[in-house]
Design a protein around this nucleic acid. Sequence first.
DNA 1: CATCTGACGACCG
DNA 2: GCGGTCGCCAGAT
Length: 110
Amino acid sequence: MAWNEIYRLVKRIPRGRVTTYGEIARALRVRGGARVVGYAMAGCPNGQGIPWHRVVGAGGRLIIREPYGSLQRRMLGGEGVDIPGTRINYKRYGWSPSRKAPTKKKPRRH
DNA sequence: CATCTGACGACCG
DNA sequence: GCGGTCGCCAGAT
């Protein structure tokens, strides 16, 4: 499991929606689960258009600490995501990958 | 090699 | 709903 796959999936998150570390871990079958996904996000390169702020904890909880925590809030708010407290309405803004990471392989045409 | 830590998550009291 | 514990794995020391 390369972190590249994780970043690629994160890039597919629609604007104004969010997903969780766990969802990503399950969709990509990441060994180590959500923890490693979070680890990957923590080291995600900047300036590559990776919407890391759209990745939240299970149930839509905001878990990133300062200084990125407030930044994430601001970014999501700018996309129209309402954040009452320390939590996002995941039922409303949640987005499920529901598909594995786009493989570079040629699509098998049967 | 031993330990600790962390942008997680499920459980439990 | 909140805080503590444990399992998980990759890096750092």
